[in-house]
Design a protein around this nucleic acid. Structure first.
Lengths: 193, 193
DNA sequence: GCAGCAACCTAAAAGGTTTAGGAAAATGCC
DNA sequence: GGCATTTTCCTAAACCTTTTAGGTTGCTGC
């Protein structure tokens, strides 16, 4: 019998695709085995456990997001950088909801420290350098931006904005504007629309 | 054999406690049955399915959070109201991480519309009334606040702030300050510390 | 006191995770 | 090319969780 050519990398990749199709919480070793035309137990030669598999998918997603954000950031600074970063983040989540959920999978500290999550933090810091905040305000700002971006995207994805007839796109732009204004210490441009 | 006295309400309550102990994603009909000293199948006389059980826990959590927020809001307005609401939200999440996760369980539109989630939205609007924002800015603001609060709390809970030696409490206060300033159209009080 | 309705039970099917141990394909070394 | 080793995949089996079907039995109301 010919071999299926399973590797941890291909498993993570397929797992990421599966996550986008059915949701990260429904990604299962069994389903993946089915897709590779292989018996379930066989996958345990490539991943240690279901948790291991999910961790690999999470790392893949973090990497992809960081790459995307990095591209978006290239050559930009100030508000442009902030907006590009924000859009990269939100765009990824909308295109790849399953992967995005995977990126939020809880990693143990060691794995997290070696992940692309570190790059995310660095990029956030880089953006904030353009705003020239003294410490600890810089840290506060990192946390606030991380919070808004993640929180907004998650609320949007979970359908939380469906009941109000205001374009989420507009709200997003308004929020980025507001954050920029806030970080520059200037009043927000109230009703920009 | 004496009866265990299982009811949907007690199941939701016990489920909420279990969630806080082991995490919402590990709440299981089986474990609950074990805790009630009853066979698994018996619980299906009280809840339709695992999904039904989780929904009930979610509704319970939403209700508790709304009550708490409502208490915090009583008699306050403006920035005080904003801060009280924010603290109520974050406090609940920290004391009841499992319930908090439950509150984020995806409900179908009908259930959501009949849930305490509606009260959350109303309270948010009430707070914003003190800032006198024209539409659609009010909606944008609701979404931003929802995003920051949820996002910050989730990042904090998932240990995302552990690597920086800045007190999350301080960041939280800074963020609330900043949001207040932002909504009033005034520059934020830069380094308030 | 007993009819009827819940609340509980046993049994069993269907999936998912994981381990143990065996067969077969690929690899590398002579 | 031939053979030993490693790697990949398989069967088998244990153990969970979910869910349905159908049978008892305790409670409640008349």
């Amino acid at each position: 019998m010919a071999r299926a050519g399973v590797t941890p990398e291909r498993l993570a990749q397929a797992g990421a695709e599966l996550a986008d199709e059915v949701g990260f919480e429904h990604v299962t070793v069994s389903e993946l085995a089915r897709r590779f035309g292989v018996k379930v137990a066989s996958l345990y030669s490539h991943v240690r456990s279901s948790h291991d598999l999910k961790t690999r998918i999470a790392l893949l997603a973090l990497e992809e997001m960081a790459d995307r954000a990095s591209d978006a950031l290239a050559g930009r600074a100030g508000k442009e950088a902030l907006a590009a970063f924000a859009d990269a983040y939100r765009g990824y989540a909308r295109e790849h909801p399953g992967r995005y959920a995977a990126a939020r999978y809880r990693l143990d500290p060691q794995t997290a420290a070696a992940s692309a999550g570190v790059r995310h933090a660095q990029m956030m810091r880089a953006i904030l350098r353009g705003y020239d905040l003294p410490e600890p305000d810089g840290t506060h700002a990192v946390r606030m931006l991380g919070g808004v971006f993640h929180g907004y995207v998650e609320l949007e994805l979970s359908g939380g904005f469906a009941h109000t007839p205001v374009d989420p796109e507009e709200s997003w732009a308004w929020i980025v504007d507001s954050l920029d204004a806030l970080l520059r210490g200037r009043p927000a441009a109230a009703s920009a629309t």
